[in-house]
Write a protein that binds this DNA or RNA. Structure first.
Lengths: 197, 197
DNA sequence: TGTATTATTTATCATTTGTAAAAAAACATC
DNA sequence: GATGTTTTTTTACAAATGATAAATAATACA
């Protein structure tokens, strides 16, 4: 976990993260709070399995997860999510279709979540909640576009260096095997890059 | 343009595309129609330049565009959009920030569009319009995730074959240079793949 | 038609990345 | 501390892709 600049600052929460997306009415905040659940996962536990419908929008209170998919032989990591991230598997969550992706806890992880049906109902009831959720989706799209741009423009060495720059803190918590799956290269290749040859 | 199965079917329009995302009230449809504009671009004209704020959500009535960015030496194509596609540059449009991406007409292209401010106002006024827009964003995210998955899992040959499968019709309308910029390989490499060596 | 321009292919060589197997290092457990 | 397991690195070789330059094909247009 990142050291917080001022420990008197309140810890980010699902609600505070949502409020940052769009300003919410008091009544919306009350209703939102009423729909939240919490859950803990051990290291290695799955939050979502292949083929399952993703029913939850997650906020990580503590811990680290990866969203990934696999073929016969290899694994491919879409993203890591750590403390204070708000995330889901967008396509499965939105359309309630079987997920092509899985979510796994890389550490003991505590989450706060809301169920898809409850969020959908809140969107209907509170326009501001739908606005916040829309904002979240536009941020998600933006992040994905950045990732595509980087994959197009940069080679493996540049992508590794960018990861160090943008996610240096995570490096200590992620195995190099997982990092290579995220970068889209083999672990051997990543090891080569790190050794600077 | 794809031959339409039954030519008595009405042509897709901005409004019909939007209605497919979420059901709109009559009053929302009326307001939406009142905010639409049309414009034509010659082949080679830019719909959006680097650093400009993307102010419009576009629907293509006819023609073909590419969304791309460049560094000193190379160009990278995010996506092609052809008839009946609804699109914008999400980050620039949503946050009204300078765009890292450009949009260029690859053919004479006619669009229907709505201005960001007008859409934002409509989202405020009509909950159903915001729902439709949210749906559009979740589809955009899903498309981006698919693209990332493919870039991670597939090599250049597989990506080319997938493009043929998914966008075969476009192949006739896109230069192989542009296709290589989309696939993330050089034109020489694409030529090699096509020749099957 | 002829010419200029652009797009595509081919050839050659360098670099990057992948594959497979083994070695080394780090970690966990008894 | 000894042992077994997992992670990471190293090595050697193969395959894919990039860079450059030249050849060919397609297109535009005077």
């Amino acid at each position: 976990m990142l050291p917080r600049a001022n420990h008197t600052l309140p810890m980010p929460t699902f609600v505070s993260a949502f409020c940052q997306l769009a300003s919410l009415t008091d009544s919306a905040i009350t209703d939102l709070k009423g729909m939240l659940h919490t859950k803990s996962y051990d290291k290695g536990e799955k939050l979502l399995s292949y083929g399952e419908r993703c029913k939850r929008l997650y906020f990580i209170d503590e811990g680290l997860t990866k969203t990934f998919f696999s073929n016969e032989s290899k694994e491919f990591i879409m993203r890591f999510f750590s403390e204070y991230a708000l995330f889901t598997v967008v396509d499965s969550f939105t359309a309630q279709t079987p997920s092509h992706y899985e979510i796994l806890a890389l550490e003991k992880t505590s989450v706060t979540y809301i169920n898809q049906q409850d969020l959908e109902a809140l969107c209907k009831k509170h326009h501001c909640i739908e606005s916040a959720f829309r904002k979240l989706l536009s941020i998600a799209t933006t992040n994905m576009m950045k990732r595509i741009s980087e994959m197009l423009e940069e080679n493996a060495t540049e992508r590794y260096n960018r990861f160090l720059r943008d996610n240096g803190q995570l490096l200590q918590r992620i195995s190099l095997g997982d990092l290579s799956c995220y970068l889209g290269i083999t672990q051997v290749s990543l090891s080569r890059i790190r050794s600077g040859k």
